[in-house]
Design a protein around this nucleic acid. Sequence first.
RNA 1: GACUCCGUAGCUCAGCCGGAUAGAGCGACGGUUUCCUAAACCGUAGGCCGCGUGUUCGAAUCACGCCGGGGUCACCA
Length: 581
Amino acid sequence: MNLFAEIRSLVTDSLTALAAEGVLPTGLDFAQVAVEPPRDPAHGDMATNAAMVLAKPAALQPRAIAEALAAKLMLDPRVTGAEVAGPGFLNLRLAANVWQGVVKAALTEGLAFGKSSAGAGRRVNVEFVSANPTGPMHVGHVRGAVVGDALARLLAFSGWDVTREYYINDGGAQVDVLARSAYERYREANGLEPEIREGLYPGDYLIPVGEALKAKFGTSLLDKGEEIWLADIREIASDMMMEEIRGDLAALGVKMDVYSSEKALYGTGQIEAAIKALRDMGLIYEGTLEPPKGKTLEDWEPRVQTLFRSTAHGDDVDRPVMKSDGSWTYFAPDIAYHYNKVQRGFDELIDIFGADHGGYVKRMKAAVSALSNGKVPLDIKLVQLVKLYKNGEPFKMSKRAGTFVTLRDVVEQAGADVTRFMMLTRKNDVTLDFDFAKVLEQSKDNPVFYVQYANARINSVLRKSREAGIDCSDAALANADLAILGHPAEIAMAQKLAEWPRLIEIAAKGNEPHRIAFYLYELASEFHSLWNKGNDDHSLRFIQEGNAATSSAKIALARATGVVISAGLGILGVTPVEEMR
RNA sequence: GACUCCGUAGCUCAGCCGGAUAGAGCGACGGUUUCCUAAACCGUAGGCCGCGUGUUCGAAUCACGCCGGGGUCACCA
């Protein structure tokens, strides 16, 4: 149930009726007609801009349209007031039972309340994390992981068929470095002094890899050159790192549906096929790029390379797919990988990248646009940096100083739930401060706590009510006499609940999971406010001593709020807590 | 130099598919208790929405140009 959508339908139906009566011209486009909560609640319960949007195409005064529409809307029993205001807004007041109906809907629909079918079962692929398999995940990866996972959940809730995917960058030079680093640990495992040269990965996490290599190869590789062992060790080491990464993701509550390997693209003709597809479109050519202006490259020299004409699809310059020595650039397998996703039949692709990949967006979109004939949209979300703080002091990460903060560190110190929520309290394109001291604080400074506290209060009410012998099943509460919920504070609570389905629609449309975190905060605030009003006005308390009917209605409101909080936290991947003690 | 993101209250940030008097938290000041507990609530103060031009009935929101800050910038991934 989406009340805003229902009222919008009522508005457009009324407009159609007015057109049939000759009051309005026929054939008007209602696409711009919106029904929204007014900024100022004093204006009413809902507002529509219909008259202003249609004034011009209908060649009528906005107020004339608004008045005709108002009269029409007043015929519907749900509408108790329709008032023309300002330049032509139509402010609507809805009957109390409409809002009470929202409470009932939340109780009967449960966690499915607010679910939308906007996705219509279409298939969307959300690619995120995609870290190199060269070590455990660090704090920088956490935000992308959380945003991607929450987005995936949001889209699933909105009726999309979602695939979560991790692209393993195991094809490039950095896995060679991993292999060489692991080889040193293998020597170490055999009692030799490891030579962790400049450029190798020094982390302790490779020691177990060395042990594993010793267990498998004994001493047989000790006196061999890398041409003998590189390929084998590369595979073993990156497999072990991927195991580590899967564990890291699991600790954060993230589960991928598909792991795709870059390396697996090589030698299978997939890269060649993707490039050929572009070549057939006339988008591949041999050429020389101009040096970038303004930035002096000392070793710049003109080179003939195989280039992708990405400028034909909105990029600023064409991009190399092949190096001057004839090997593929990183971009080539990436094109092949996205081509693969297109061929798998996805209706939409989403990539979550770190902000340092900003320069990559246009070329990737160009490639997907070309390879899908513009049919498959690719949305790329750039996730900005996370700045770590400890006790208010900025905390610099350094591998050398041993202050390297891993995902595990964060999860162990803050907990997966808190980490996830905090990572979603900013929109993706803004840097985020993460203060270890603050996220654990139990006060309204900390939005996670604030929302969880509201839920704990709700559960406390339910617990006490059950002890008092009231049937608190959702079915029983849904059948309570909800007409009792007539106080403005209670109606306001129900109105906030009514926004939930609309919020989901907006968040899913823009791929913006952070909106849910903000909404939950507002919802919790509304609830805490209502709760405290019960201190002054005991008739607003949820449990009304000796009056089971009244109690049931009020408890229903609390429970409905709890349902939405649980649903919202569920999309964020956060576990709702029952009590705070 | 190009591309991109950001610029909203003292601070940290929402809002930005155009809508009415621009919101929240923190910080400051004043007040209210206990159904989960003041871990919360209520109120007061605080704003050329970076600047300018344009589009529009209407611009924090859209377009363009500046200014300031972050990120990125051929054969790294």
